[in-house]
Nucleic acid binder design. Sequence first.
DNA 1: GTCTATAGCCTGATAGAC
DNA 2: GTCTATCAGGCTATAGAC
Lengths: 200, 200
Amino acid sequence: MKTKTKQIPVETAQFILDKAIPLFARSGYSGVSMRDIAKEVGISGAALYHHYPDKKNLYIAAMTHAFADNASAVEFSLNTHGSPAERLERFIFDFTKQMSSDPDFRALLQRELLDGDDERLKLLADQAFVAPFTALRELATELAPDCDAHLTAISMAGLILFHFDVEPIRRYLPGCLKKHNDPQVIAKHITKILMGAFSK
Amino acid sequence: MKTKTKQIPVETAQFILDKAIPLFARSGYSGVSMRDIAKEVGISGAALYHHYPDKKNLYIAAMTHAFADNASAVEFSLNTHGSPAERLERFIFDFTKQMSSDPDFRALLQRELLDGDDERLKLLADQAFVAPFTALRELATELAPDCDAHLTAISMAGLILFHFDVEPIRRYLPGCLKKHNDPQVIAKHITKILMGAFSK
DNA sequence: GTCTATAGCCTGATAGAC
DNA sequence: GTCTATCAGGCTATAGAC
């Protein structure tokens, strides 16, 4: 047992990431300066370089940190018991809710798809997406044996993600209602479409 | 009849946009400098300011130019004759092919969804998306009268766009094959899913 | 581990010659 | 309409005191 408890620092290196993630999500790599991050953290710009060798390393650490948790949550949601239809419905509701509650995750993913080099994308895939995608692909095989499982898994995830990605402009398109932002409504709609598609 | 034909200039202001669009698509607004654009065009940085008052105006002009043509093409594809199922199939194939052939358009749209302010997004919606989306929504009403037409239209467009958006990381996910990049294969897969979903 | 100060470069934008 | 030269400021990153 330690006799002296530290006040706040908690581990400054990680605190920096927590502050940097929303900035990178909102403005992208080249839209955020080391000064912006330092100001948000509450230290000088120079102090950042004590924890990370340069901006790129800080960015990669922030991405890794941001994507670390989400993978296991999605995988867990997929690896439950029940019929394929039940598991599909649970996945849709859980994934929709999770994406709805974590706009930073979605923005960072979109930005990485636009700006990430091959090395970073491979790292991201291995660290965060291979495991849940494998589970989703197995569910796709069970639900639609005569469809290409890879494409079907992409379609299922995309159907959910796209509704959120497009939200900034959707509100200016005809027929838009307030309820269309409700994750429950979105999940229900997607469930209806996919259940229809897979029930022969 | 003019006695003197100009050599190349064609209209420098528009030539600048043609050169700027791929740069903004690849690196985003803050990732491209006026000097980058000037070098690509083949003039000095100062000369750009003769055609556009500042970087922001040049960017908006480039976006408007990039989105102008695509709207009418999609709308045209939707306003053909045939049964709802036939029109759905034609839309899927045409839109998939068009998105496959214009990666700059997709990248600019994604970037605008991430970075665009309300004013720019409203402008974009009115200029480029309201017309084709209205046609797509009408098709959705015919195909699935018991579904929310707005959400269904979003789903149909998203199913197509997402396959391309996710391409940079999809190649590191299990089950990926070369044919999954073929727009024909993608279109066929999406048609299968949506036809199944809408045929009760 | 944090600070202030600063080096060296790149940025958007302008002035003025041609 | 394009050029060269330049300004003022922001950028990443470092140096060195504490």
